[in-house]
């Protein structure tokens, strides 16, 4: 499964430009499904039929945060804006990769020592530029255009139990669903795996993905923050390696209590380690499914991740495996949602 994680996280597919990742997921699935399709906004939906007629929808978003080119100046330097929650400080000193594999380096404006200090102190995209090594505007235009999308340029590293890569948010969720689909023989319930688009800029894909499916219950699989590094946010408990995190709430949604308690009981019964998550910020696709039509009971199962939205997001491999295990058991459960 580490190979799947490496492949999926290294692909560059920011919000709105998810074709590459969608094609790769279908390729890796290698026919382990009954049906798949892409809806009007580009969500990839993979169905594995079950026996009860109950519909479980699992969701992980396949987009990642990134940047988009908004201007190219006479000397061939690019200006960019964020696609999703990219922190400008994270960009300094790192590289970006555009969709056609053009790599760029980030620079900061500064005409005097004072303005350099000021720019660094109040860093914003307005004072950043990208250098793709172009001679001038004409040369730059051969490589990128205004409206070209890019992502962090970073690779996967296996540190043993811990795995590091860009875009663990939320390719790790995608990897969990891919692995699950590969392992599932004939599930008890119908399993719809939604690989959603444009989550990072506002839950766009998930808002519409369930419309025609009308699921009975939804589990969003996404990353969450950690509390286990030096002087990490002291109000949250989540730790790498303590198992999948069952989300009580975040800034966008409160998990459906019945689903949450069902998951907790299930984990206990199956001896799968788990932890309880309360996140004071952020949100997942579950928030969108809760509002779908007459309302769908929805909850989030999270993979605790360090350094979210940087080029080096870190997860614990055992958490990933245990998440697959928990979800496998969930889609094979009888429930009354």
């Amino acid at each position: 499964m580490k190979d799947i994680i490496k492949t999926l996280t290294e692909i560059s597919s920011p919000s709105g430009r998810e074709d590459t990742i969608a094609e790769k997921i279908v390729e890796i699935l290698d026919g382990n499904f009954d049906e798949y399709w892409r809806d009007k906004l580009g969500n990839l939906i993979v169905l594995k039929k079950g026996k009860t007629g109950k519909k479980v929808l699992l969701d992980a978003h396949m987009d990642e945060i990134g940047v988009v080119v908004t201007n190219i100046d006479e000397n061939g330097f690019l200006r960019i804006e964020a696609v999703g929650g990219v922190n400008p400080y994270t960009l300094v000193g790192s590289r970006v990769r555009f969709q056609n594999n053009v790599v760029g380096v980030i620079g900061i404006e500064g005409e005097s020592f004072r303005s350099s200090r000021e720019n660094m102190k109040n860093l914003s995209f307005d004072v950043l530029f990208v250098d793709i090594g172009a001679k001038n505007k004409e040369d730059a235009l051969k490589k990128v255009k205004i409206g070209s999308f890019g992502t962090y340029d970073a690779s996967f590293h296996d540190l043993g139990d811990k795995l590091v890569s860009k875009a663990m948010d939320d390719r790790i969720g995608c990897a969990v669903m891919v692995q699950l689909l590969k392992e599932l023989e004939e599930p008890l319930n119908d399993v719809y795996c939604v690989f959603a688009v444009q989550e990072e800029i506002g839950l766009v894909g998930a808002t519409v993905a369930g419309y025609d499916i009308e699921p009975d219950v939804v589990i969003a699989i996404d990353v969450t923050a950690h509390g286990d590094t030096p002087k990490a946010l002291k109000r949250i408990p989540m730790k790498l390696g303590d198992g999948p995190a069952l989300k009580v709430m975040d800034a966008y949604s409160i998990s459906d209590r019945k689903v949450l308690e069902f998951l907790e009981e299930l984990a206990k019964k199956e001896n799968i380690p788990y932890q309880i998550e309360i996140l004071p910020f952020g949100g997942t696709d579950a928030a969108a499914y809760q509002r779908l039509k007459a309302g769908v009971p929805s909850a989030t199962v999270s993979i605790v991740t360090r350094y979210v939205h940087t080029p080096s997001e870190m997860v614990d491999y055992n958490d990933v495996l245990n998440t697959v295990k928990l979800l496998k058991s969930f889609v094979n459960s009888e429930f009354l949602f």
């Binding site: 779908l292 039509k293 007459a294 309302g295």
Partner: peptide
């Protein structure tokens, strides 16, 4: 339910 956290309940019940 859930008004103080985003008006979820009112939206879905009004739908039905």
């Amino acid at each position: 339910v859930k008004e103080e956290t985003g008006g979820v309940g009112a939206t879905v019940a009004s739908f039905s």
